[in-house]
Computed example of a mutant assay.
Amino acid sequence: MGTEARHLVSVAVGAELERAGRSRHWLADRAGIDARRLSEALHGRDDFTVADLAAIAAALDVPVSALTPSADPPHR
């Protein structure tokens, strides 16, 4: 995943986590992701896998698409 895409995904995951009012430790436990690796991915230093995003989406009760925003601005 490129740097820009990694950033967009980490921001989206962080925003959904904040919206849910849950902690990173809660998410790591609920999604079955190592807490340190989750932290690295949330800071944009590691990639989320497709399996990570599916588990995170399920834990936060959001569609996976909420965690994978488009890098392209909408066309008008």
Results as ranks from 00 to 15, higher is better:
P73Y: 08
A12S: 09
W26I: 09
H7P: 00
D72S: 15
D46A: 14
A71E: 14
V64T: 10
A59N: 09
F48D: 01
A51R: 12
I56D: 04
G44P: 01
T68P: 03
D61P: 00
L27Y: 03
V9Y: 07
M1P: 07
R19Q: 13
V9M: 11
G2P: 15
T49E: 02
A71S: 14
A66V: 00
D72P: 00
G21E: 09
G44H: 06
D46Q: 12
E16F: 07
W26Q: 13
L27E: 06
D29C: 06
A71K: 12
A5W: 00
A58D: 07
D47E: 09
A31C: 05
R19H: 12
G14E: 06
D29M: 12
R36V: 12
S10I: 03
R76L: 11
P73H: 14
I56H: 01
R22V: 14
V62P: 07
R76A: 14
L67K: 01
A12M: 11
D46F: 00
A51K: 07
V50L: 10
A71T: 13
S10L: 04
L17Q: 00
D34L: 07
L27M: 06
A51Q: 08
V11S: 07
G2H: 14
L27P: 08
R37W: 08
E16D: 08
S39E: 15
L42I: 04
T68E: 05
L17P: 02
S65P: 00
L17H: 01
L60D: 06
S65C: 03
A35M: 07
E40L: 14
R36F: 11
R37E: 09
E40V: 02
S70I: 01
S10K: 01
G44N: 03
H7G: 00
H43I: 00
D47T: 05
S23A: 14
D29A: 14
